[in-house]
Amino acid sequence: MNSSQKNRLKDNAFKYFGIGCTLFGLLMLAIFLGNILIEGIGRIDWGFITSFPSRNPGKAGILPALIGTLWIMGLTAIIAIPLGISAGIYLEEYGKKNRLANILEINISNLAGVPSIIYGLLGLEIFGRIMGMGGSLLAGASTLSLLILPIIIVSTREALKAVPTSIKEASFAMGASKWQTVWYQLLPASFGGIVTGVILALSRAIGETAPLIVIGALAYVPFVPSSPADEFSVLPIQIFNWIGRPQKGFAINAASAIIILLLVTFILNGFAMFLRNRWQRKVKW
């Protein structure tokens, strides 16, 4: 066997190994989804979505948790998106490239890897106690905003970096200011990437339980929160609560709530893809 044959063999071997790896992940996901669907799909009806929690698994519903999740997502988006994108633009386009910038950059990347419960403790002390928000929606959303800010900042920077330098230089050559360049050229061109980053970040926030439990999110809320100062529950906490119960009926409820949570995430992701595709068609160089 000559060396080119050997190389081809290695190439093939890696190809099949790669297929195996891909299928492994997908298979696990399929088993998990299948399991959840079989167990939970039959329990989902309008009553399940519009009822309050109950000791009777057949009557229990997810209304306060679902609305709590939507509130948290909305508030987190309102807080984190402007902050994150602005910080990303500053760091990428305005900030000087010196040692301080390097340190900032490393720290932001590290922050993205900090366990979420640490953010919970931080949020409990700063938002909950010092700023007096208690266990409100606002405290929860602020905490989750901190959690996802690094992800938004990093992905905004990456998206801006991906815009060809020639575009930027052309804009400057036409006499545009830095802000005009960012607003009329860079942001529209990098919009798809930024939205993707934002949605990934929000998808992470939607599944978080630990930091919210730490700041005082509740498990039984008999009302629908109507202002950011209200106390709340979210779907992951409702699921966590039901999974720990001894009765089989609650395990089924948990599976159904997981389906709803997945659905919310899918809708969010679908919305992002729709926006991105629409936008990309508009950008032509």
Partner: peptide, 19 residues
């Protein structure tokens, strides 16, 4: 208890956590 209490006293908001 909170669930049944709510049926009688709908204006009292009882919330329960899991800490």
């Amino acid at each position: 208890v909170a669930e049944d209490y709510k049926a009688q006293y709908p204006d009292v908001k009882v919330t329960v956590g899991l800490s």
